[in-house]
Structure formats: C-alpha cells, structure tokens
C-alpha cells in the first residue's frame, strides 16, 4: 500500500485517482473532526469537501516535508475556525432541538444512555468552545484523532513542550467546567 506522501506526489504529477485514494483514507476522520469542532452535523461534510479542495488545489506546490495528515488537519482546523468565526454563537441550539427529535425517532430501549451521550456532547462542545483555540485543537487532535504530541506540534507550529502545556491546561479547565456533569455520571459507565 502506498503511503500518503506517495499518493500526494502522484496527485501532484496529475494522477487524480491517487487523490481519490487519499480522500477515501481520510475523509471520515476529517468530517468527524470538523463535526466535533463546529458541532454542526449538516455542514461538516461540506466543510470537509472544502478542506480536500484546498489540498487538491495546493497539490502543485506540495513538498513532502511534513506528514500528510498533519498538513490535512492543519487545513481542517483553519477551515473550521473560519467557519466558527463567521457563525452566530447560538446557532447550535437548532441542532440541540434537532438531536432531541432524533432521540424521539430512534425509540431505543437504552434511552437514558443515549440522552446522556447527547447532553454530554453539548456540554463537551460548549466546554471546548470556552478553551483558547490552541488548547481546543491540541485536546481534540490528541483525544479524537489519536495524534502524538509531535504531530500536534506540527499542526500548531509550536514545540512539543508547548503542546503538552496546552493539553494539560485545557484538561484542567475542562475538568472544572464539566465537573457538575461528570458527577451525574449517567448510564454510560462514568
């Protein structure tokens, strides 16, 4: 199996099938990263399309210096931040209503657990929004994308020590913000 960098170099040479292969590998991760970043399910795929479009357009200038995924998530972070900055703060309330509707439609037996997850998702999103951007990005990449500190440092263009500090400070703040909800526990084994 070819590496991401090899596929990107083929894309640079004009091979679109290589870029299709790259997208197949990464689009799910990018869509979910944007979804968690923006808390907007509907827009996350469109924004992911925008991310890949930017990557495709930049393919001519691509240099295999950094890991492809760090470059990809750097662009995804920028697209998400740009989107969030241009969005009214309380827009996610629509999604809260939407998710309540989803819950009713699903009619699942373990409703408590699902409600807990949905509510917790909103609490987590709001808590993450309070964090400074770099702390939020560092925590999201470490927690959800499984990035190492070194990889996060490439995305954020800072030192590994700084990433550790971002994750540490962010977690401390999240514990303080989410403490009331953590105490509830819910049916999710926490």
């Amino acid at each position: 199996m070819q590496s991401d960098i090899e596929l990107m170099l083929r894309t640079k040479a004009g091979d679109d099938s290589a870029f299709s292969e790259l997208m197949k590998r990464h689009y799910k991760g990018v869509v979910n990263y944007i979804y968690r970043f923006t808390n907007m399910r509907d827009n996350s795929e469109d924004l992911a399309q925008e991310v890949f479009f930017r990557v495709y357009r930049s393919a001519k200038n691509y240099r295999a210096e950094a890991k492809f995924s760090t470059w990809l998530y750097k662009i995804a972070t920028n697209v998400s931040l740009t989107h969030l900055k241009g969005r009214p703060k309380n827009l996610s309330l629509d999604e809260i209503e939407e998710t309540k509707g989803e819950i009713e439609d699903q009619r699942v037996q373990i409703a408590d657990d699902i409600i807990y997850r949905k509510e917790m998702k909103e609490h987590i999103f709001k808590a993450l929004e309070v964090l400074p951007e770099r702390e939020k990005v560092a925590i999201m990449l470490c927690k959800y994308e499984g990035f190492s500190y070194e990889e996060v440092s490439e995305v954020l263009e800072c030192t590994v020590g700084a990433v550790k500090a971002y994750v540490h400070r962010g977690r401390m703040k999240l514990i303080d913000i989410l403490e009331p909800h953590l105490a509830q526990g819910g049916g999710y084994g926490v």
Partner: peptide
C-alpha cells in the same frame, strides 16, 4: 473526563 469525551460519538 477523558472517558466522557468518548460520549461524543462519531458520525
């Protein structure tokens, strides 16, 4: 907290 962050399912 670290476990609770997993409550945010993937789509």
């Amino acid at each position: 907290l670290w476990d609770a962050l997993d409550a945010w399912d993937e789509i």
